[in-house]
Nucleic acid binder design. Sequence first.
DNA 1: CACTAAAACGGAGGCGCCTCCGTTTATTTA
DNA 2: TAAATAAACGGAGGCGCCTCCGTTTTAGTG
Lengths: 203, 203
Amino acid sequence: MADQPPETDEKPESSAPKPLRADAQRNRDKLAEVAAQAFATDGVDASLEEIAKRAGVGIGTLYRHFPTREHLVEVVYRREVEGLCQAAEELAREHPADVALELWMQRFVDYIATKRGLATSLRVLLTTNSTLFSDTSGRVSSAMRGLVEAAAASGKIRADVDASDVMHALGGIYSAPNTPDWRERSGRLVKLLMDGLRFGARG
Amino acid sequence: MADQPPETDEKPESSAPKPLRADAQRNRDKLAEVAAQAFATDGVDASLEEIAKRAGVGIGTLYRHFPTREHLVEVVYRREVEGLCQAAEELAREHPADVALELWMQRFVDYIATKRGLATSLRVLLTTNSTLFSDTSGRVSSAMRGLVEAAAASGKIRADVDASDVMHALGGIYSAPNTPDWRERSGRLVKLLMDGLRFGARG
DNA sequence: CACTAAAACGGAGGCGCCTCCGTTTATTTA
DNA sequence: TAAATAAACGGAGGCGCCTCCGTTTTAGTG
């Protein structure tokens, strides 16, 4: 099924360390993909041996690519952010600006969901490795800014909103208690927010 | 995640919830003592089975008393703080005020040393369990305040210093890089600080 | 192609974690 | 002091972590 491997996480372009061998790259990608699922389902304590098995590689291979659990968590997290930012571009290309924004916010909810699963580990990582924090939060908020401004410019949402206000409005998603219906709640929050944004738009 | 009530251990005197059986109390104390040593020597990842063995109990006993590694770390840390505060009183009783202060600061260096060993775990614990942080930092700084004020009052050190300034001066111990000679450096820092405090004292 | 060196693979093995439960011990009661 | 019972003990067993190294695969080269 993996004819077209998804984008790699290590770009060989900028200060390229070394191009990975084809099989290595394939395994690395698969591992990250499976790990993302596993972490989302079982939390950060998901069994690494299980992940290796599900990715169809030996445990040794997993450890060669990701020497510690934290490494793996970090890579998964970066991919998540990467995917979120790419999604912003794609959605903007394929949908009216307001719809793109809404769809993207729904995806943002998914992203936060994984973040919750990784909570403890991520907290340590984000305070330890400050680059990680500034990298990711910067990228995400600028992706959102692009969508909001496009939607405002096209008249699909009101013009008097600032991207950072919208970000702030989404804050409730972070801070909400981790109830079982958290996801639905957040979905509704996004819809509500969109209604507010559309209200009084000129388009 | 699941946080438990503070659960004070040790002395059955301090508003005890339930008196522990004699053997249980003995084992619990011994475990905490051995663990303190082990953590200081080998870091937080010290083998719990080894700790149990050295304490002369089975691994099951260790887990009954301390369900998770974090529990054990927390108890060890609280004991450390406890010891530090008691030391302040004892030293004040048995030495001239300035000497007491100096000796106590040297002991404070030891305390910080264990804190460093426990760094990662403690950081998580201290952000997760905010009671722990306020409890301990409050107690330590007030112990120090007592010593400084006594020394100032007795004229052994200059009167125009504030305890929080001294605390601040010790800040360098925290932030110093974790070199092998860290301990010696810190010892010298304390001496230097004492010279500064004694300079111009009226006693 | 065939060959080779370098790169990557994978899983056995050793160790630590943690649970579970049969055995032992402290304390209470008579 | 002896019996009863609640509390504590301890270690075997199962599982996951991670390292080490013999085997396999890939990417060059003739």
